[in-house]
């Protein structure tokens, strides 16, 4: 059974530098939760492929669609999100001219800091409020952009002195910052740039705790070869020795970067498996064994 430290919240954001496997891990967490009987909503926040490609062959729409037993999924697109934000989330007076407001809000979203982000991050929060999924699992924007999304409510509070946008931003901020309700998983690989970006975000969250950290997951970690340098030297030269040396070098470098990360689950490098569907399933199997 998956360690409950990772997903025991109503809403879990999964982020990481591009290419580290965050979408695959989001998918595997959804599968794990579904296997233990939970009802999951997976939300692709910035791309319609992402986690969905590990769960379903069809691209996702804005309405939740069943992709696996126990798992629904949707993708946020900005214009629908903007529309929904205006219709359902902002308490605007009935008499207000909708067309003018929609246009105005579109321009705001493109120009004013925080507005586009709050409209997008508002979707998962809104689904958590109104639906009764056990877990809302968010395939979040990549690490470099994540903080501007998480921080959007405060950015707006600094920009707008009062009124419905600000009130909504404050409710959103409270929901994201509620340590009983929401948490963030950071995915990384044991390489220089992903680890540095992870450390940078950890620093930002420590300085401004906009969300609780569920954990840092290291992905694509090589197993220990259990051969020493000397033993590798005794191998006859050729592919066996080359592959052993290569493995040992990559493994050693990975361990160095792992030491720079906080303690957390390590997921193995999946040799020879790359198709999206397989990766999600295989990692879901791995979650049952992983411990730290």
């Amino acid at each position: 059974m998956i360690d409950s430290r990772m997903i025991d919240w109503r809403m879990v954001f999964v982020s990481g530098k591009g290419g580290v496997g965050k979408s695959a891990i989001t998918a595997s967490l959804a599968l794990s939760e579904a296997r233990r009987g939970g009802r999951v909503l997976v939300i692709g926040m910035v791309e319609s492929i992402g986690a969905a490609s590990h769960l379903s062959a069809q691209p996702l729409g804005y309405e939740p669609r069943r992709v696996r037993p126990g798992i629904d999924a949707l993708a946020v697109n900005r214009s629908d999100a903007l529309d929904e934000y205006l219709r359902l989330q902002l308490p605007v007076p009935k008499a207000a001219p909708t067309r003018v407001l929609t246009r105005a809000l579109s321009v705001l979203a493109e120009t004013a800091p925080g507005v586009r982000e709050i409209v997008t991050i508002g979707k998962p929060v809104y689904e958590m409020w109104r639906s009764n999924y056990d877990l809302v699992l968010v395939d979040a924007p990549p690490l470099g952009q994540l903080f501007s999304y998480l921080r959007a409510p405060s950015t707006i509070a600094e920009l707008v002195p009062a009124g419905p946008i600000r009130a909504q931003a404050e409710r959103m901020s409270a929901a994201l910052g509620d340590p009983e309700a929401a948490a963030l998983i950071i995915v990384t690989t044991p390489d220089e740039l992903p680890v540095r970006e992870t450390q940078e975000l950890l620093g930002q969250i420590e300085a401004e705790p906009v969300i609780r950290l569920a954990g840092v997951v290291a992905n694509r970690v090589l197993p220990d070869l259990s051969l020493t340098d000397t033993e590798i030297d005794t191998l006859p030269s050729g592919p066996h020795q080359d592959a052993a040396r290569h493995h040992h070098e990559v493994y050693t470098r990975q361990q160095r970067w792992l030491n720079e990360l906080p303690d957390g689950p390590r997921l193995p490098y999946l040799f020879g498996i790359h198709t999206a569907g397989e990766v999600g399933e295989k990692l879901a199997d791995v979650w049952e064994e992983v411990s730290w």
């Binding site: 902002l90 003018v100 407001l101 419905p164």
Partner: peptide, 17 residues
């Protein structure tokens, strides 16, 4: 239109924008 939007959304934003 900008005035209405600003009143509803809550700030002197759109005119500035």
């Amino acid at each position: 239109a900008l005035r209405i939007a600003d009143t509803v959304l809550g700030g002197p934003l759109l005119e500035e924008i």
